[in-house]
Simulated assay, not measured.
Amino acid sequence: MAHVVLEAALVDAGLAGAVEVTSSGTGDWHVGNRMDRRAAATLTAAGYDASRHRARQFDPSSAQGIDLVLAMDGDNLADLGGVSPRVMLFRAFDPVGTGGDVPDPYYGGDAGFEEVLTMVERTSGTLVDLLSDALARSREGRR
Rank of each mutant, 00 (worst) to 15 (best):
H3C: 15
H3G: 13
H3E: 15
H3K: 15
A9V: 00
A9C: 01
L15W: 00
A16M: 00
A16K: 06
T22I: 15
S23Y: 08
S24D: 13
D28V: 11
W29K: 02
W29E: 06
G32Y: 04
R37T: 15
R37N: 13
A45Q: 10
G47N: 04
Y48A: 09
S51I: 12
R52N: 14
R52P: 13
A55R: 06
F58N: 00
F58A: 11
D59Q: 03
A63W: 03
L68N: 01
L68K: 08
D73C: 09
D75T: 15
D79S: 05
L80Q: 11
G81P: 05
S84V: 02
S84N: 10
R91I: 10
A92S: 15
F93M: 12
P95L: 03
G99D: 04
G99N: 10
D104A: 11
Y106R: 10
Y106N: 06
Y106V: 02
G108Y: 11
A111K: 10
G112Q: 01
G112F: 06
F113D: 00
E114G: 06
E115S: 12
L117A: 03
T118N: 14
T118A: 15
T118S: 15
E121Y: 00
R122F: 03
G125Q: 01
A136D: 11
S138F: 08
E140N: 14
E140T: 11
R142W: 12
